[in-house]
Nucleic acid binder design. Structure first.
Lengths: 196, 196
DNA sequence: CTAAAAAGTTGAACCAGATTAACTTTTTTA
DNA sequence: TAAAAAAGTTAATCTGGTTCAACTTTTTAG
């Protein structure tokens, strides 16, 4: 095991699937450690997202920009989470999203080719990716329920509750667009909360 | 190969992963053919969703009911699609959703135990479930983008466009709640479209 | 076949959240 | 470290979509 970043990823993997030392090391050897400065893009429309990114330190935001110029946050990700444009990554097609570093960050990148190779090489590696995708699927259903059933105010309250570590690391306009409201309205909600 | 329903599922599976005859037949043998009458529930809050359901004929709708009594459609599913409460199914916990037959339907059900067994038994079976989950993940991201970036009117237009086969098979109030609007408002949108 | 229930329609009043605009605070960069 | 840019705030006004209520049409069950 080489260093702290790979230790983090190792723990993340072993938490999902039991690998012996050799299996683990081979899997880890397919990842590439990358340091990314704040405000740097790791995915951009017009290019293909060729990597799946595991965050060791730092924070990212993925978003789409619509015709009018507004952007809409799709996902936030901090330590121990993954981020990419999955439609682009899985289907090797052009990205429609930006993925932007919100802080100086350290990530471990897995290329599509290496991922495909790992999935073929060993049933257990395949299991890891299957579990990751199933958890994402379950997560998205829960998120969809929240979005459909709650008001803007309650979606903000829920976010505070579920992701207290994220709230203070992301710009407010990005959080507002993630929650499906304007930055002005979120400002009001915050103010209203603070004064009661 | 026993009949038309299993043929459908076979095609669906072979479309995702190459299996030889024995592998395919063993996988198929884990499914149970069930006929469901219109208005029958196959998943209900308070019970655990023990099956993943492949639809051979018919149509289903999953929804949650909130305190005020309104329901919110989470998913529609017709022939060649899957439906269940995935949070309940994957984690063997109580369902929060209803899954209701909108028509007399024929489904092929796979139990959690059989699915777990299949995933362990053969790398290729695992691959099948991994691909299914990844596609669902990609689908949910596209859906999230639509929901965040489009107005109610445009979400309806997009639905018409993408799922013309579904529109006329589901009650309008269910479609309205799927699209995140009231049934009255959807009625107005339809009327407006019809008259221009 | 018929009565009752469920689904869909229409219009008026209303409201959660958007828009616009002017301003303050924080962050960035030269 | 200063000035410019970006982010956040506040308030007035506006609107896409909701709510409520009365009605018509369709579906269901006896």
């Amino acid at each position: 095991m080489q260093n702290q970043e790979f230790e983090m990823l190792a723990e993340h993997i072993l938490n999902r699937v039991p690998l012996n030392v050799d299996e683990l090391n081979f899997m880890l050897s397919q990842f590439k450690l990358t340091r990314v400065k704040k405000r740097q893009f790791i995915v951009q429309p017009g290019f293909t997202a060729n990597y799946r990114n595991f965050i060791c330190a730092g924070a990212f935001r993925s978003y789409v920009v619509i015709d009018s110029g507004e952007d809409h946050t799709i996902q936030f990700a901090i330590e121990d989470w993954w981020i990419t444009d999955y439609n682009s990554y899985f289907n090797a097609e052009q990205a429609t999203m930006f993925v932007l570093a919100l802080e100086d960050s350290t990530i471990l990148q897995l290329s599509r080719e290496n991922e495909d190779m790992l999935k073929l090489a060993n049933h257990k590696y395949e299991t890891f990716f299957r579990i990751s995708a199933e958890r994402a699927q379950a997560f998205h259903f829960r998120q969809l329920i929240t979005n459909l059933t709650q008001t803007a105010e309650f979606r903000y309250e829920s976010f505070l509750d579920k992701y207290p570590k994220i709230v203070n690391r992301v710009p407010q306009y990005a959080l507002a667009s993630y929650l499906g409201m304007t930055t002005e309205y979120l400002s009001k909600l915050r103010n209203k909360r603070a004064t009661k």
